[in-house]
Design a protein around this nucleic acid. Structure first.
Lengths: 251, 251
DNA sequence: CGCCCCATTGAGACGGCTCAACTTGCGTGG
DNA sequence: CCACGCAAGTTGAGCCGTCTCAATGGGGCG
């Protein structure tokens, strides 16, 4: 399944030395990612500042909290988890990022990355040096606006997450996550019904503020009720309407 | 106490027709607010795009979710609450804003405000038209960077809130909120120990993901343990160290 | 093959919710 | 002036959802 994701994003040409050679204009994520709604010349200019690195393997860290902030990153293939560790060592998963999604907007304020970023499976990212992005954004109004938009959407989705954590019960949290993943897969023309979860039960539970036991029990219950079917990380949404209805219940 | 806050931010000159006349360069919040770290000429240019309106009274909405997004706002005096209402009518308070703090960064992505904004007491705000801010940001690199920084800090504090909602028990959530308010009062050279909460128990509970009964019980317990004293909305932090220690406990 | 990690399932404990009663402060109107 | 209603807050009793602790079951890998 990981290979399915990767192949759906693989650029047309591959490079001899094993690195993935790509360009924004040929990337089939350009309708989702940073270059959205930019004209071809401007995409070229963004393209030149993007650095495409060696693929990350599952468990590899892209960066860790406290390291100097220099770049933001767009996911090209695979999947990425961000998490923070507070002063007491408590971990909080703050997000999951799929191809075409941009991460790393925290850390601009403090010049240090605010969270840790780790690959959940073999993944590749585009690195976007932020100082150069700022220079270019000052020259291309639509790019500046687009960066503001991406950050704004991050804030909105974080607020939605605060509501989920604050007001919803375990079943509703799980349903909300499954539907979010489903919609994001669908946006990339993958199946909205059948998917392989990129994260462990531990990561799901940590993100949703519940224990792995509750995650497991809830998934089992949803399966018993024939709303989804579960086989490890393979999930099939059998009844999207009822799953959606579950999102709308309180704790 | 509301008047204390207002007077501490009142600009030097007052206008005849009752509106508060002000400028960024004379505002004693300029070390906290949008013009931070800008030189005097650039502050003047920011100053010209800022619109200062009639004061809001407690309960007045600055804007509501769904209205077209045009401006962000800096709090000049008083205090402001933001909250979202999801499709089921569930309300979630997403933040409290004190003088010198900037709000409204959600909504850039969708061109519609993502949340509702209401004054908790008599308050005044500076309106910053966003299109003109974008124009100016493209000309003043430090301003563009500063807007990115403000949004980045919003994201970081939202992530911190996600951790609080996801991992901490009621006592720890209350302690975290009290210390956050205390630090933000102190930054404006107000007392870090004695303060008047700008929000109701309902708002505190909604923000923190607990019921008003639990808020009330928890405050009573902290008072019994002589960590704080409570008299309605008047709070005195009697033992900051122990209050801080309470932040660091799990659920 | 055995080890370890991840996931599942069960039983009991507990923190916070629900429901309810009561208090207090404040504005309104008789 | 007091009576009254109303909103906000406090406190208590019992309930419920999730956590904790524990046992068991696969699946991948050395």
């Amino acid at each position: 399944m990981a290979s399915t994701i990767a192949s759906s994003n693989r650029p047309s040409q591959a490079c001899t030395h094993g690195f993935i050679k790509a360009s924004c204009s040929h990337c089939n994520l350009k309708g989702l990612c940073l270059p959205i709604a930019m004209d071809i010349d401007d995409i070229e200019r963004v393209d030149h500042l993007i650095q495409r690195g060696r693929p990350l393997h599952a468990g590899d860290h892209l960066y860790k909290a406290g390291e100097p902030f220099r770049s933001i990153y767009a996911v090209r293939s695979g999947s990425i988890k961000t998490y923070m560790i507070d002063e007491d060592g408590i971990e909080q998963v703050t997000g999951f990022y799929l191809p075409g999604e941009v991460l790393g907007f925290d850390g601009i304020g403090t010049h240090k990355h605010g969270c840790n970023v780790v690959a959940l499976e073999t993944s590749s990212v585009c690195e976007i040096p932020f100082e150069r992005l700022e220079d270019l954004a000052a020259q291309i109004p639509s790019l500046q606006h687009h960066v503001f938009q991406l950050m704004s959407k991050q804030i909105e989705s974080d607020h939605q997450m605060m509501l989920t954590l604050s007001k919803k019960n375990a079943e509703s949290r799980i349903a909300t996550l499954l539907l979010s993943l489903s919609r994001r897969f669908a946006r990339r023309n993958l199946s909205a019904r059948a998917m392989r979860l990129p994260m462990s039960r531990m990561d799901m539970g940590n993100f949703l503020g519940i224990t792995i036991e509750t995650v497991s029990r809830t998934l089992s219950r949803l399966q018993k009720d024939e709303i989804i079917s579960v086989d490890g990380r393979e999930i099939v949404i059998k009844d999207p309407e009822r799953l959606d209805a579950l999102c709308h219940q309180l704790q």
